[in-house]
């Protein structure tokens, strides 16, 4: 290793053999600057590669999902995949109707949203328009905690705490149900809905509220009739991001909703969602390259497309409210 060259050595006049102080030759300084620039360039390149790795991840996801699904769709026509009403990929009489899994996903997400949207919206309005500073300072970390609890723990909670309570009210309810999974999932999603909608409402300028108060409106009237409409696209974005979370949630439904594919619209029944099916197959021992192995990529592709649609819609809406003010 060379000792590091100090600034004084490179920039200050150095004594030559005769003891006369002269500047280092211009060519040396140019060389030093050249190598310095080269190093800077190289570092920038490395940093760029790091940033680009996120794009590579997306490309990787798309490539893997498409290439494995491509093989799958060679065996199963897309039309059957979309219209068949049975999902029995591992039976001798195999059917591949994604509708079956989709119904489970839709019903559980719907139940979750029926919990998360009202509660999340009320909490967001309360925190943004009503709550004193101290309450907000305490409430926000608690809500963050609600989102930070590992999902497998919510699965445990849904199966062994919520289901028995529900069975007490509805004795006919089985041990696994979309209802129990959906309710717990809803609580889990509350913080996502509330924090994005609260941000949107707080972005509404104070002057708009003051105008409303000056007309004699109360806080509640101002919140519901002035602030909420002004923050509409942000709140809509929050709901949509909540939907996307619910659709992609895995462990709660895998634990508490059962893993039996079941084409149903009844939340009291057990059913598999897209995500639960992937977990079920991954837990088993399917040989790499078999049709059963490829079904999880086809299912994953459907999931990816659905959540991507909602995410893009959500971000588009969120961008819009930022541009208004």
């Amino acid at each position: 290793m060379e000792p590091p060259v100090s600034i004084t050595e490179t920039l200050m006049p150095v004594p030559d053999a005769a003891g006369v102080h002269t500047h280092a030759p211009a060519s040396d300084r140019l060389k030093a600057r050249f190598s310095r620039n080269l190093k800077e360039r190289a570092i920038e390149g490395v940093l760029f590669l790091a940033a680009f790795s996120s794009v590579a991840t997306t490309l990787g996801i798309v490539y893997i999902l498409l290439s494995e699904s491509w093989v799958f769709f060679q065996h199963v026509p897309l039309k059957d995949f979309l219209t068949d009403t049975q999902w029995t990929p591992l039976f001798d009489d195999a059917h591949f109707g994604i509708m079956v899994l989709l119904s489970g996903t839709l019903v559980s997400s719907l139940v979750a949203l029926l919990v998360a949207i009202p509660l999340g919206t009320i909490i967001a309005i309360y925190l943004s328009e009503f709550a004193p500073f101290a309450v907000r300072e305490i409430a926000k970390p608690v809500l963050e905690l609600l989102a930070g609890v590992p999902t497998v723990i919510y699965g445990y909670f849904a199966l062994l705490f919520v289901t028995p309570i529900l069975q007490w009210f509805f004795p006919d309810l089985g041990g696994f149900s979309l209802l129990a999974a959906g309710l717990v999932m809803g609580v889990m999603i509350i913080p996502y809905v509330s924090s994005v909608s609260e941000d949107a409402m707080r972005a509404v300028p104070m002057a708009i509220r003051e105008g409303s108060y000056a007309m004699g409106a109360t806080r509640f009237q101002t919140a519901v009739r002035v602030v909420m409409p002004s923050a509409f696209s942000g709140i809509a974005a929050a709901y949509i991001l909540g939907i996307s979370r619910a659709v992609g949630e895995t462990m709660v439904v895998a634990v508490a909703a059962g893993m039996q594919p079941n084409l149903t619209w009844n939340p009291a029944e057990p059913a598999a969602t897209i995500t639960a099916y992937i977990v079920q197959v991954a837990l088993g021992d399917l040989p790499h390259g078999s049709i059963g192995y490829q079904t999880i990529f086809a299912a994953g592709l459907s999931l990816f497309v659905i959540t991507l649609f909602f995410n893009i819609l959500g971000h588009w809406l969120r961008r819009r409210y930022r541009e208004v003010y």
Partner: peptide, 15 residues
């Protein structure tokens, strides 16, 4: 990056 943050975790598992 914003889109990646919204991809369900199980899709990362498939990747």
């Amino acid at each position: 990056i914003t889109n990646l943050a919204g991809v369900p975790s199980i899709v990362y598992g498939l990747l």
